[in-house]
Amino acid sequence: MSKLTISLSPHVHGGDSIEKNMYGVLIALVPAFICSVVFFGWGAITVTAVSVAACLIFEYLIQKYLLRQKPTIWDGSAMITGVLLAFNLPVSIPLWIVVIGALVAIGVAKMSFGGLGNNIFNPALVGRVFLLISFPVQMTTWPTPQGFATTDAVTGATPLAILKAAMAESEADAASSATAMAEQAPRTMSEILSSQGISMSDMIYGNIGGSLGEVAAIALLLGFAYMLIRRIITWHIPVAIFATVIVFSGILNLADPEQFAGPLFHLFSGGLMLGAIFMATDYVTSPMSHKGMWIYGVGIGLLTVIIRVFGAYPEGMSFAILIMNGFTPLINRYCKPKRF
């Protein structure tokens, strides 16, 4: 008999680990990745591969040479950051921009705060927003899905950008001439979209312009279901976001269907699904209690619709999540779980 080990209870562990959760998220991202490859071809693979590789390399270099820690790049978190960053980029993005995004995501947003568990803001989103502000042209050139077709990529606008442009147009019309406005045939938002050849089913299956990972709502929902079954995340944050977006955009739509798109459009367009399911639920930057999760989710939903409808950018998901990330410590402080 060897020596007896003395430790305090509990003496058993459930077997959960950081890796199981992180790789679980990566598995949940596979359907969306397959869709992005189907829609955008080889470009989807290269952008994702470069992003993941860059994130892993930067994390390794920073841990080994700057922080002088044992590198933990295989815990899966840097890989998730890489995949999510790539999923937020258009397929036509120059690869050197992807590398810069990865450096900002890992170096600035994650490691400078102390690495996994200590960052305030979602690293992938910080990287994405940095790129959006620094390289606005490259970041808003959206090739329409071509699959592996060899023809030159055709760029088009995302559904949200189409709407934004239409809204600006009608506002300009209203400003220029009141009489012209009266003569103009009323156009609802769904009419504007269908005039551009975009249907709701295209948006659900992902046959629309957009960044790599955000286009196929159904694939993202599949990943959501997987994470719920594996108990990697709870349903609270995504459902709070969906519900808020539906209610808020529904009210706007009822008030003025000509000016504001309906709830289903908001739900299935842009990065809402990707953001709500995979980015807002990031363990580190989201609240701990269920009540806190509701407040956080409702905040993201409201801010997203406000930015989309009234802001300068067509898409508001990234900003909404980052703003609410900033509120997370405050939410944690004031939202306590239901006590016994």
Binding site: D16, I18, N21, S77, G115, L116, G117, N118, T234, Y283, V284, T285, S286, P287, M288, S289, K336, P337, K338, R339, F340
Partner: peptide
């Protein structure tokens, strides 16, 4: 490192953090 997953909060039978 704590990854702030909140699982300890979920399982605490006394509703603590």
């Amino acid at each position: 490192n704590c990854i702030r997953c909140g699982k300890c909060v979920d399982v605490c039978p006394m509703g603590l953090e």
